[in-house]
């Protein structure tokens, strides 16, 4: 009977200790929440509002492009405004990933390289294409050729930033494989290799106007998006685990809320 009481007392004091530990990591959890929020928003913006996932087929004529934008003008305008406002969220998740990567038994060069690769990739891959699409949607009075050019530039910068993203995936994979502490699971490193190869396979979109390797193709787009979504999902869940497993003593500047 007394050991039951002792066990109960032990559990109680553990529970009392737990809230403090959770508060110490509050700042990391705030960063973490930016991931599911941002990526769901991102999906909503690109799929429902922006009508760009899946993208319209390549090789549309100028008139068709202008008609497409005009038909969806109001939802597109909403999409791009939302994106310009929320794009910054991505930096929260980058900061978090880098902090967790710094816990790995690898040189900080790798997390810094990750950050640099992603920062460079996000410029054409997200910010630039947002600006170009917004311009196309908000200035319907422009010359149709210009609108078509903005649309083409937007889509190609969205997909064409693949080299930087491939680099980001590879850096992440290398860090995971070299890490002896297992901050992230090894299979996430392997999935990152899929991500890198997917980016490489997206290269033919510059050439093909139709078929599986066009920018709306079964392989370049659909398979690529599936792999990305799967990777992102497992990244988010692995980050959550990594934060939870991080010993409080390790926090260099614990949150003191």
């Amino acid at each position: 009977m007394s050991d039951v009481l002792a066990a109960h007392a032990g559990a109680q004091s553990a529970n009392e200790a737990a809230p403090t530990a959770k508060n110490h990591k509050l700042d990391q959890w705030i960063c973490w929440w930016s991931l599911p929020i941002f990526y769901n928003l991102f999906g909503f913006i690109f799929v429902y509002l922006g009508k760009l996932m899946p993208p319209p087929r390549p090789g549309l004529t100028t008139a068709e492009i202008v008609a497409f934008i005009q038909a969806n003008a109001s939802s597109m305008q909403t999409a791009w405004v939302l994106l310009t406002l929320s794009l910054g969220f991505a930096s929260l998740s980058s900061g978090l990933i880098i902090v967790q990567m710094k816990r790995m038994t690898v040189s900080p060069a790798l997390p810094y390289a990750y950050m640099a690769a992603l920062a460079v990739a996000a410029l054409p891959g997200c910010l630039l294409c947002t600006i170009l699409f917004a311009l196309a949607a908000f200035r319907p009075d422009r010359d149709p050729e210009i609108i078509a050019l903005l649309y083409d530039m937007g889509l190609l910068s969205f997909v064409g930033s693949l080299g930087c993203f491939a680099t980001q995936y590879m850096i992440f994979a290398i860090a995971i494989f070299l890490d002896k502490r297992g901050i992230f699971p090894k299979w996430l490193g392997y999935m990152s290799i899929w991500g890198a190869v997917t980016e490489l396979v997206a290269a033919p979109i510059w050439i093909f106007k139709s078929g599986p390797y066009a920018w709306d193709g079964l392989i370049s787009f659909y398979l690529g998006t599936i792999i990305f979504v799967v990777w992102e999902f497992f990244l988010i869940s692995s980050l959550s685990k990594a934060i939870k497993q991080q010993p409080v003593e390790e926090l260099t500047s614990p949150c003191t809320v």
Partner: peptide, 26 residues
Amino acid sequence: GDVNIWVFVIGDMLIFSAYFAAYLFA
């Protein structure tokens, strides 16, 4: 090996099946 490599290998096998399917369909 270990579970990790099998996640990789089986996933890769499925991805290649997608390539084969795209080829056959075309």
